[in-house]
Simulated assay, not measured.
Amino acid sequence: MRLQDKVAVVTGGAQGIGRSICETFEKQGAKVIAVDMNAAEFEQANIKGYALNVTDRAAIEVFVETIVKEYGKIDILVNNAGITRDALINKMTEDMWDAVINVNLKGVFNMTQFISPVMMENGAGSIINIASVVGEYGNVGQSNYAATKAGVIGMMKTWAKEFSRKGAAVRVNSIAPGYVNTEMMKTVPDKVLDPIRAKTMLGRLGEPQEIANAVLFLASDESSFVTGHNLSVNGGLRL
C-alpha cells in the first residue's frame, strides 16, 4: 500500500473532493482524520471525522495536540477546505470578500502553521494545497475566490523553500482542479456547463476520484523528488 501507516489530515473532508481523498488514502493504508465544520461519518474504521473550523486558531492548536498525542505524528496535510461567495467586483460586499479570504487563504495558513512544525520535527512530510484553475487564469465574478486560490499556490512555493532549508524532507505542492462533478456542480444548469465542456480538451468535467488520484501521488513517496510544484488537473481547460 502506498500510504501504509501514514497519518493524514484532510480539511473539507466530509464531502466532494475531500471525501474522495479521505477514502482513497484509507484504501492505501493511511490513518485519516477528515476535518470539516461538521464531523463526518465514514464506514471505514481508519477514517475519523473531526469537527473543526479552519479559521479558529485556538481550536486548531488543540486539534493538532490531540492528533499528535494519539498517533505520534502527522505525515500528510491536505488543505482542501474552501467556500465560494461569487459576485462581480462592483457587487461584492466586504463580508463576501472576508468570508472567502478567511477560509480559503487564512485557513490554509492556519493549518499549515500548526502542523508543519510536527513534520519538521519528524524530518519528513507532504503538504498539498488544493488550488483551482480559477487561481491560475481568473474567472468572472470570482475576485475573492481567484485571489485565494492564486494565494495558496504562492504560499506553496514559499513553504517548499522554507521547509527544506534545514534538510527536512517536508515537501509542499498544490493541485489546481478544473470543474469537477461534485454535489455542488449538480445544481449548475447545462447551459452554464456546456461551454465549459467545450473549452475542455477532454470534452467533459472531471470526477472527484481523478483529483484524489493526483493528490495520492503527491502524498506518497512516489513523488519524493517533487516539491514546489502546482499540478493542473483540468482535462485541458482554458478559461
Rank of each mutant, 00 (worst) to 15 (best):
M155H: 10
E26F: 00
L216Q: 09
F63G: 04
G135S: 11
N104Q: 03
A59F: 04
Y50W: 14
K6Q: 11
R2P: 11
A87N: 13
T227I: 07
N80R: 07
V140H: 12
G49Y: 09
T182W: 07
Y50R: 07
A39Y: 10
E26I: 00
T158P: 04
F63V: 04
F225E: 04
N110P: 07
N129Y: 13
W159A: 11
L3M: 08
S223E: 14
A168E: 14
L3E: 05
T200E: 04
Q209S: 12
E26T: 03
E183W: 06
F163A: 00
Q113I: 02
R85E: 05
F42V: 08
G29T: 02
M155S: 08
D95C: 01
I89W: 04
N53H: 09
V68I: 07
T66W: 03
M96D: 09
T55S: 12
K31C: 13
V35T: 07
A214Q: 12
V192T: 14
L205P: 05
N46G: 13
F225P: 07
G13M: 02
E70V: 06
N46L: 06
G228V: 04
M201C: 14
T158W: 09
N79W: 03
F114A: 15
R2A: 08
T66Y: 05
N46H: 12
G16Y: 13
T66R: 08
A34V: 05
D56C: 05
W159C: 06
V32A: 03
E94H: 09
G135V: 10
V134W: 13
Y50A: 07
A51Y: 09
F63D: 04
G125V: 10
K191G: 01
F109W: 14
N110L: 05
I76N: 01
R171W: 03
V108M: 11
G235V: 01
V170R: 00
Q4H: 10
W97K: 00
L88T: 11
I33K: 03
R85N: 09
F42P: 06
A214L: 14
V134P: 08
T84H: 01
T158E: 10
T187A: 15
N129P: 03
E65L: 08
V170K: 00
V54I: 13
V140G: 05
L237G: 03
T66D: 15
I17K: 09
V10F: 06
V134D: 14
K91S: 12
G107P: 05
K48N: 12
N139M: 13
V100R: 01
I67N: 01
H229S: 15
L77Q: 04
N104M: 04
D221Q: 14
R197H: 01
G107L: 05
A198S: 14
T227V: 08
V64C: 09
A219H: 10
N38E: 14
K149W: 05
I74K: 01
E23H: 04
V152G: 06
K191R: 12
A147V: 06
A160F: 11
F109T: 01
A150R: 11
R85Q: 10
G82D: 01
V78H: 02
N122D: 14
G203K: 11
D95T: 12
Q4L: 09
